[in-house]
Design a protein around this nucleic acid. Sequence first.
DNA 1: AATTCGTGGGG
DNA 2: TCCCCAAGAAT
Length: 341
Amino acid sequence: MRDNKVIAPHLLDWYDRHARDLPWRVPPGGGRADPYRVWLSEVMLQQTTVAAVKDYFIRFTTLWPTVQDLAAADDADVMAEWAGLGYYARARNLLACARAVSAAGGFPTTRDGLRTLPGIGPYTSAAIAAIVWDLPETVVDGNVERVVARLFAVRTPLPAAKPELTGLAETLTPRQRAGDFAQAMMDLGATICTPRNPACGICPLIDDCDARAQGIAAELPRKAAKAAKPSRIGIAWIARQGEAVLLEERPARGLLGGTLAFPSAGWDGRDLPPPGVADWHEIGEVRHVFTHFNLSLTVMMGDLDGAPDRGRLVPLRQIDRSALPGLMRKVWDMARSRIAA
DNA sequence: AATTCGTGGGG
DNA sequence: TCCCCAAGAAT
């Protein structure tokens, strides 16, 4: 059996002095957090950096201050506000969750109850339970995996090491202030116990860290080798008619599911013809990187001869770049420069 | 259980 | 330029 580490008092003391000030966070000892704001921030923060989330969080909470407000919102408005943040299944699940919570009269007050809601998994359920309801749940995100792997010098590569790391993390969670402890672990991982060049010299847990003692902190956690990233090609069509351009809502599931987009094909498993008859001509190539492939998208432009067979024509001035996902922003930027010229 | 889901920043 | 990675969940 591994040694029993007791790090919570020391780490919480560090957190009381160094907690980051974040829009969704209640300072240590600052009272109960709003479950809506904590839930919204945790969903936005899934696989997404704090820097990228901040503005989105402020916009969402300004537009929809309560979960009831969000539950009453139009799907298209929420998708448009989420555009650019990525992982769009989160936005669809966000609305489904808001509507379930609103109908139920509030958020569940246990981890298991939270876990049943769409978009809330092992991490997010534990985070809300600990941060909002002050329950002694153990929160395991990428930061905690790294901190724990180093504290206990776990050499097993991820993701196989996940159960072991979770078990070890559970031995660290205090009965009191579990929410602050979780946020302290994540802050530590984000600011000191970083993936590369960890700042062990100023780490409050330096005397508890096995990896540091063995001189291998920067080498942990180990990770399984990743598969090479394949390349895909496709076509996007800028279909014009007078002062309007064709846009469509993508299918609800899959790549960029439910987002607003220019008609395209060949890169997402769909092999579709152009959206109508036109004098198609190439205006350039857009490159984009997804999690699991690189994309080269050939952009075609043309004036429609007759009605398009899908999508809807949107007046130029009505096209809102910020309502498009990142890939389609690139396509639009290229098209707009051509239209202006 | 392994895949499939975005995007932007940093080294 | 390329690779890594970031408060994961759903299937």
